[in-house]
Design a protein around this nucleic acid. Structure first.
Lengths: 245, 245
DNA sequence: CGACCCCTTGATCTATCTCAAAGGGGGTGG
DNA sequence: CCACCCCCTTTGAGATAGATCAAGGGGTCG
């Protein structure tokens, strides 16, 4: 569908990152003209974060927002007792943080090494208000994210463990494809999960043991294969879809 | 906080509803100038819907969007087996529907008699793209709604029935106040729930029996009083907050 | 007055959680 | 290169919160 460029290793001395940004066409900056991009480039800063590194802290004053350029991150929050709920996974071109807000409403942590393009929120807010095309892109993205989040509410509130797992696996299979430049959904392709069993549990509102048992169950039923801890091969997509219903 | 006008019963012969709209200052049209409002007024249509009446159907082509002027509505979706999950409650000044999208992602049904200001989505999209101030308001509203929805994910995924109920009651107490023009949170004020027990269950991802038992439990513990089916008096707000944690 | 709907309460069942212990797999240090 | 260790995962056994099934109560409306 979209053009999927291989990242060029540019000499980092080049100051205008945006010109060579691999996600520019998909991210919210995609509709800006070159002169506008140049202004945005001046207020943004690229940063690599390691897997496991925290990028945004829940409850902090919302001082930075960011665009994901490469890698995967998780958005999460927790109860006062420390039970975690993962609110979503951020993929390349996704937007992070809370523009026009006082506090960051969720924590963000890298699941893989990730490259993010960060902005001071005040700079970003100011720029956005002056560039309706950027605000429009952000609006479309936020509306889509709201739809996705609401669909996940149905999973959390009304599905059993089996339905949750099937839905999760299909969702990952769909979303991981564009993120990894893979060809079209070869149903029997192996996908590498960016999440541990515990993190999958935190996405689905389950415990790690239940997730593990469901993996085993789906494998024994011949719907999936588990070549290694992190890898899953979907053998019977239609079967999973029937479970996810 | 905000000014809370008593709705004037205007002669409906007046064609420019916007000029006297009780939610105009709070809704997304709030920042428009008079001439812009006049254009918007021409493409919008006011409509009363009865309690129980469906306004938007999940999965339909997204042909209309709307603003809530008066009354309360529920947004909901369901599993293929028919289990319902309520995704949120829409209050006066809230926005309904999916601008810039193909299909309506959730159903909308009035909980009370409600007055909505509807637009053909194509008209609205067109108008919005030409009026950045309106798009900005819509963006802010969508961002807030996303935050709220994500907070609810923590409830659905990681809270037990007691925590869900306490959180629900506190949330309703907070949100019902501005909607009903009541004075400041007189903690011992009775609030009239706009939801049946079944609908509360559908908000919280529980069954009606569990909701009923939790109501009884909270009443016996002296945290709330239940003067009638639909009425709740919060007796011990701090106690509820401790449970909601 | 009766029917209907919504709500409450009780009894039982079960999906999932909790607690516990035993595999691997991969990396590190000897 | 091997062995050990650590962490993640799997599996088992038992406990339990909430679901399910069932029955009865009470308010409201025709």
């Amino acid at each position: 569908m979209g053009i999927c460029l291989v990242e060029m290793s540019m000499p980092e001395a080049l100051t205008n990152f945006c010109q060579s940004c691999t996600v520019r066409n998909r991210a919210i900056c995609g509709d800006l003209h070159d002169d506008e991009i140049n202004v945005l480039n001046k207020i943004g800063r690229r940063r690599w974060v390691e897997a496991g590194e925290q990028v945004l802290w829940e409850g902090d004053d919302a001082v930075v927002v960011a665009n994901v350029i490469e890698g995967l991150l998780k958005l999460s929050t927790q109860t006062s007792e420390g039970k975690e709920q993962i609110l979503g996974i951020a993929y390349p071109s996704d937007f992070l943080g809370r523009p026009f807000g006082e506090t960051t409403p969720y924590g963000v942590e890298a699941l893989t090494p990730a490259l993010v393009c960060t902005f001071q929120r005040s700079d970003f807010d100011h720029f956005a208000r002056e560039h309706p095309r950027l605000e429009h892109k952000l609006l479309e993205r936020t509306l889509s994210e709201l739809d996705r989040t609401r669909r996940w509410m149905l999973l959390l509130g009304r599905m059993n463990a089996e339905q949750k797992m099937a839905t999760f696996l299909l969702d990952m299979a769909d979303r991981l494809v564009p993120a990894t430049c893979a060809p079209m959904p070869e149903s029997n392709e192996v996908m590498e999960l960016p999440l541990t069993r515990q993190q999958i549990a935190d996405v689905l509102g389950l415990t790690i043991e239940t997730v593990s048992r469901q993996f085993t169950k789906l494998r024994k039923e011949g719907l999936i294969d588990l070549p290694s801890r992190r890898d899953v091969r979907i053998i019977d997509r239609a079967g999973l879809e029937a479970l996810a219903s």
